[in-house]
Design a protein around this nucleic acid. Structure first.
Lengths: 244, 244
DNA sequence: CCTCCTCTTTGACACAGATCAAGCTATGAG
DNA sequence: CTCATAGCTTGATCTGTGTCAAAGAGGAGG
């Protein structure tokens, strides 16, 4: 999965130092990019980009969680994407974005200036292919989310969300689907992601707790007691469980 | 808008006869494709592709309307896309699709065999760029739809849908945002697109009729009496109205 | 240690939309 | 012309979530 788009740690101990590589040929063709990349940090709650902003750089999430969301005239909010480490912001040939990007936790981005990046796309072959893959992955994710938003019950939405958190942290992280899992969003943010209210999120989360499916230490830290029951509650096909 | 992806009418009177062109350089670089393309027709209701099918060809819709939808284990259905004339089916480097494609009306597709098409992507530069644009357009559309599914009321959903039908038929068609508009989907299909039940769709549509916003001849054919009221009912920003 | 502030939980109640159930209207076949 | 069928409308009722309100954590700063 898109771990090595354009940024990859030079050594695993120092997750901040990335280099640009081509994931296809696995060579440092793009080492030139080293020169023009930079890091930006944002505190939890900071706005990273505003809807309509000129995109002066593209970026990859190194650390933390950011949200993409759209706000209606009257204030209703729908989150349309969640950026975890290794996810990418930016799109070739688009000067602006049509949603807000906000740091949900403290976030570090690895940024590439727009112009050189665009030129890169023309010169190095496989990079644009990689970007296409990313775009299609996002499209698939968006469509799955449409099913969730349009047809799933509150309980199924919550279970799906939790399962997704488990999977993403399992893959990126250290293994062990149990002990050290984190909910990187507040109840309110989760509700905006799932098309619910924060009260409903709270109730459903506590229902799963009461049933012994989840356990919470903190409000944010939890573990899954009964993975099977969790999956059963998602409403998804039986197989989709462990697969990427 | 993506009218001239890979298929463009040779003359406007004969919309069936397409040739492959590169929309960037506007040259017939791809005329070779003439050789390997073919037309397939489907009757309303026909399944065009099944979820998980091997994609042996990519295609462009010439005539008619097709739907993309996902079905949950227990039968709940969510439509995740609507293909109108000039829309494209298929994705580079993906062998399968994860949803069903069904003909909502009689449909004619302009098909290109998979293999030569893939090779084309490697050789002709701007085609893959065009595909990227298409993918990003679809992604934007999917995200707008997420807002609709997650946050809009039944009335807003219906109004948004109708407005979209007006816009799409206005652009592709002959002009005149009035008289000859068609609802290419049944109430049931619309409900699956909007995350509602068919009864709610029927009620909301008739509500708009009773208020004098719409008028129906047929169950399928309608005209917009009060465009402004329609837009006001969508819940969208004031400006988005007439823009592409 | 206390206090403020933000996030969360919990309860009571309301309502939009789902569900269930007839009945209606076209259209096409025989 | 009649019948059958598929799609649509309309009504009555139910229910899952939203809404409103109040009170309970937990952390940060003094």
């Amino acid at each position: 999965m898109s771990i090595d788009l354009l940024t990859r740690p030079k050594c695993s101990e120092c997750p901040i130092r990335h280099r640009a590589v081509c994931s296809r040929c696995d060579e440092d063709e793009l080492l030139q990019l080293e020169v023009i990349k930079s890091y930006k940090s944002f505190a939890a709650g900071d706005q990273i980009m505003w809807r309509g902003d000129e995109l002066t750089y593209v970026a990859s999430v190194v650390k933390g969680v950011a949200t993409l969301s759209k706000t209606m005239e009257d204030g209703r909010v729908q989150m349309v994407g969640l950026l975890l480490p290794s996810d990418f912001i930016g799109r070739p040939d688009r000067r602006t974005i049509d949603f807000d990007v906000v740091a949900a936790t403290d976030v570090t981005l690895c940024c590439f200036a727009r112009k050189p990046f665009d030129k890169l796309l023309d010169t190095v072959p496989h990079v644009s292919q990689r970007l296409m893959e990313i775009a299609l992955d996002e499209l698939d994710a968006a469509r799955d989310w449409m099913v969730l938003l349009g047809r799933k019950t509150a309980r199924e939405k919550i279970a799906t969300f939790v399962e997704m958190m488990v999977r993403r942290q399992h893959v990126g992280g250290l293994g062990l689907d149990k002990h050290p899992l984190v909910l990187p969003l507040t109840r309110d943010e989760i509700s905006n992601y799932l098309g619910l209210t924060l009260e409903t999120v709270s109730r459903q989360l506590n229902a799963l707790k009461k049933e012994g499916v989840l356990r919470f230490n903190d409000r944010r830290r939890f573990e899954v007691i009964d993975m099977q029951a969790l999956h059963a509650a998602t409403g998804d096909d039986a197989d989709g469980g462990v697969l990427s």
